[in-house]
Design a protein around this nucleic acid. Structure first.
Lengths: 230, 230
DNA sequence: ACGTGTGAATAATTTCACAGCC
DNA sequence: GGCTGTGAAATTATTCACACGT
């Protein structure tokens, strides 16, 4: 039983707009903090947060300062408290219901990915257009028919959608998702998608990441070749 | 103590180093260009590249100018040529052999992900510690025993490794991979990893992406209560 | 005309360095 | 002594605006 530590601040959302670079690092800090929590460690310095996130400690302190002054000078940060503050700033105190469209390899992997549940994202639906898959159980979900997209989204009150489908159909499904009123979309489709301005679209492309690695690897492994193109 | 800092490079040769932000956008342009190629479209403007990448056109032109002047004023860029130039700049003309460690849901999804092959990455091995999986066929690969990691990496001459495994074992496997001489690692493990400085590690965390979405969604749906004092 | 290429201007981000508090 | 919090400086990235070639 946790004794009364820090009085829960009556949510004031004292946070203004955070710099995008800060937002993405906050998720890294949060991950580290939750790991520390699990280990029972309750204090942490900007230095060690910095190390596990791979950034400088001044950067960490600056990021955290946007949330307010939750550290103790000469001591560090209290893990539980900081974790809660970051979660709050990121909007993770709300309930996020995620529908995954596409029950192929990736969609199935995502549907069973424990990391979602454990971090406050509730996977409420898994859809696919393939009639062979519709109705089958994957993880704890039954695959719904992608034809019923709008109905399923409404019924499950999903407020986020993950697109895990082939490039060919991504844009049309994306359009339907947008029309259904979803404004937060995470796409794993390896194609550019366009959405209205008020819709938030993030893209993850595994091959892209490998390409960036390739660029750096090339620079490490191979001497600067001179290639004056024909 | 590493003192690899170069205070200033008195270059006489054109600097080959690309800004990190440019490198990641180049992968987006490349994706678009390859799509255009497939459609048989052979010219493109910075404006339309910009649109599909979601950036400004001046940004595109600046990025491309680091590679040289491959556009034609008043006309645009020749799709095939530009595609090749970008691929070359990113080091995609080399042969990249990727070993995937972890044949769980995600590892399997990655092993069968067509996007790798089609973009010049050859998946040469899939490993797992689970004896139930070792020896089974996934996609066109037979799962190798993770105990034989070093041997498999050597035999397949893998030069990149993708970690698709649970957080608990990620660091130890990562260490072994590094010891085996791999210096380009893409991790999907939802934990911070530490590697020597000369090793290139990139991290993709699906939950992280959802968290960033959550932040923006929260700001859309629950407008910041404007109460600085009132 | 049109759209690239690019220096110059602006904005964002990171790093420095040190005052302030425990 | 140790470590946070934060203005100021440095660095990096984006945008502007227009000259230039086709």
């Amino acid at each position: 039983m946790t004794s009364a530590q820090i009085p829960e601040e009556p949510v004031g959302v004292p946070v203004r707009q955070l710099p995008p670079a800060t937002v993405s690092r906050l998720t890294l800090y949060l991950r580290t903090l939750n790991g520390l929590l699990a280990e029972g460690i309750d204090r942490v310095s900007s230095e060690s947060l910095a190390e596990s996130a791979g950034v400088g400690s001044a950067n960490v302190r600056k990021d955290l300062s946007y949330l307010g002054s939750y550290g103790t000078r000469g001591v560090g940060y209290e893990v539980g408290h900081l974790s809660r503050k970051i979660a709050q700033a990121l909007g993770l105190t709300h309930e996020w219901r995620v529908a995954i469209v596409g029950a192929g390899n990736l969609g199935r992997a995502l549907a069973r990915y424990a990391g979602f549940e454990s971090r406050g994202f509730d996977v409420v639906a898994l859809l696919d257009a393939d009639q062979m898959l519709v109705g089958t159980e994957i993880g704890w979900l039954r695959v719904s028919d992608a034809d019923d997209l709008e109905t399923v989204l409404a019924k499950t009150r999903a407020n986020m959608v993950v697109l895990a489908l082939p490039g060919g159909v991504a844009q049309s499904v994306c359009d339907r998702v947008v029309d259904a009123g979803i404004s937060s979309i995470l796409s794993f489709a390896p194609v550019p998608l366009s959405v209205p301005e008020d819709v938030n679209l993030r893209k993850v492309d595994m091959a892209t990441e490998l390409q960036i690695l390739a660029y750096h690897a090339q620079r490490l492994q191979f001497p600067p070749l001179d290639q004056t193109g024909a």
